[in-house]
Design a protein around this nucleic acid. Structure first.
Lengths: 144, 144
DNA sequence: ATAATTTCGGATAGTTTTGTCTTAAATAAA
DNA sequence: TTTATTTAAGACAAAACTATCCGAAATTAT
């Protein structure tokens, strides 16, 4: 469903957000450990998300990654997915046809229209903040 | 969503089925052309599906691939997906956690439970035959 | 039998994704 | 100002996925 890069990205953002709620910055090593993700690869993914203004970072001692408390309420998970994987998950044809639409649909087109729009809706309605709360309460986990 | 192998596999099966409705066997070159798929790769995918008894084949002159008219009504698309991509699409954790369940869920677990079971249900309820009818009627396409 | 046709199966090659390493740049503290 | 810390960025490596090629096996037709 999601690429590995995207999985790491989402987990990292949630972890960063959970620490940002306590006004703490997080170092990449810390993120990697707590999300059970490869450090250097996750760093690369986060670098891209920093460029795209989804998360913020600071170099130097006491630096690290953080995310605005306001922003984490506004940013939906779908933004992270699109930032990393693009929007083919939401738009692309299930069978890989270059053109696939209501006029010239692939055999699965109509069935997937619902599934995809539902998936999109769910991810658009879910904010980083919402997911972070679950972590804070200990109801959900990022690694096992 | 699906791997390329799976996309080719599904398209190939639908094309084979549409020809099998007219009691014709189809050669791999014919399949590749009409599904806009790479021939050798599709052949390999079909080889696997033959082994798993989803489609049948015959070597030699006038040979080719075909699928029983009865079977195409019974076999759901989900069987093809599982045969090629496994069932991680239906069962796997959205964030890649090894263990992710109701007791120890990832942050997206509950949201994806619905999406996944819906996706699974749709693919289980859709037979090869059903998709083939759309092709026959010219309502849907396998290549453009 | 022989020849032609077609799938089967294994080897090989290319491309993308995933992952690592190393150096540079930025920042803060001493 | 110097040093330590941390992200940034690019090169490099490994693995997975996609794709091709070729000879073997099976089947049919001549």
């Amino acid at each position: 469903m999601f690429s590995k890069a995207c999985e790491y990205g989402i987990k990292a953002i949630i972890y960063i957000a959970s620490r940002s709620l306590q006004d703490e910055r997080v170092k990449i090593g810390d993120i990697a450990k707590n999300t059970d993700s490869p450090e250097a690869f996750t760093a690369k993914v986060l670098g891209s998300l920093v460029k795209q203004n989804i998360v913020q970072s600071q170099t130097g001692p006491n630096g690290g990654f953080y995310i605005d408390k306001e922003r984490m309420r506004k940013i939906p998970v779908s933004d992270i997915v699109v930032a990393i994987d693009g929007n083919s998950l939401f738009n692309g044809c299930a069978l890989g046809l270059k053109e696939c639409n209501n006029l010239k649909p692939c055999p699965l087109h109509h069935k997937f229209l619902r599934i995809r729009s539902n998936l999109k809706k769910v991810l658009e309605e879910t904010s980083i903040y919402e997911l972070t709360i679950g972590i804070q309460k200990g109801e959900t986990i990022l690694a096992n």
